[in-house]
Amino acid sequence: MSDSEQSEEQNREFKTDEDFDPEFFRNIERKSKIFSCIQCGTCTASCESGKWTALKTRNIIRKVCLGDLTVLKDPDIWLCTTCFACWERCPRNIQPTGVIMELRNYATKLGNISPNHRAVVGYLGNTGHAVPINDITKERRKELGLDELPPTLFKYKTEGEGKELENFKEFMFDLPPVKEEKKPKKKEEKK
């Protein structure tokens, strides 16, 4: 792509058929329901996050209907707190919360996942917990008459034939490698 073509793409406000891939989401769950969306805005109005953040649920559903894949790079899909308010109220039963969580699955496969979330996956693999134990809590557990360590996977990490925690780390939540984000840097340089 030549520089002039690239700048045209960046500047233009309109989109063409080539900007959409209506086939991309052909295996998405609830597909037919998503297409029955009437864009009434009940989801956005219900959204506790969207009141304060850039998350606009209705627009996300619209992008899925159009096959607009920019939705998978959109950080806004990670601002849903999964409170299910839109799911409960959608008059077409589209279950937007479920759609957003599924979009995040697609985004994850493309490597669009935040460093903090990678860290949480790391904790799970190393300790079996998303929030691992710390020394102060061990002390407090003892003070309250509880075992120092709860009887979870972490306590048994070195026991058992299969060493289950290792299996857990090996087979679960395999993430794509961290992307080298060059383009945004260039932009910054230009600016």
Binding site: C40, G41, T42, T44, A45, S46, R58, C86, R89, P91
Partner: peptide
């Protein structure tokens, strides 16, 4: 926009209609 709820302030009794103006994308 289709209102998502009618919200009552329990302290004042006031009702508010929560809705997105979908045309201007404003809650």
């Amino acid at each position: 926009g289709r209102p998502s709820e009618i919200l009552r302030n329990p302290l004042t009794g006031e009702l508010r209609v929560i809705v997105e103006d979908t045309l201007s994308m404003t809650p």
